[in-house]
């Protein structure tokens, strides 16, 4: 799976969450920060983490949590653990 496909999946989830929280969807870009730029909360981030694990069949350790800050960073993290899984 390439990074663009991963990003698309994450973007779809973020859009759903943003719509549900009534956030400005124009602020959703690949490099915008989830909390500071988009206004997501910590529960939403936990859901992003959980959804990535489920969707991509990977296990992301808790220590990565601080790195889950944007769509791009998410995709990088997913790729890393997909590679580990494949190895």
């Amino acid at each position: 799976m390439n990074q663009e496909a991963i990003k698309t999946a994450i973007r779809e989830l973020i859009t759903d969450i943003a719509e549900d929280m009534d956030l400005d969807q124009a602020k959703i870009t690949d490099d915008a920060l989830f909390i500071d730029d988009m206004g997501l909360d910590s529960m939403a981030l936990l859901e992003v983490l959980a959804t990535m694990e489920k969707k991509f069949g990977i296990s992301i350790p808790e220590s990565e949590f601080p790195n889950i800050t944007s769509i791009t960073k998410c995709a990088v993290t997913v790729e890393k653990y997909l590679a580990e899984k494949g190895a």
């Binding site: 529960m43 936990l46 859901e47 959980a50 959804t51 694990e53 489920k54 296990s59």
Partner: peptide, 8 residues
């Protein structure tokens, strides 16, 4: 599995 359920 217990590690995939949505915390929400």
């Amino acid at each position: 599995g217990v590690n995939t359920v949505n915390p929400q």
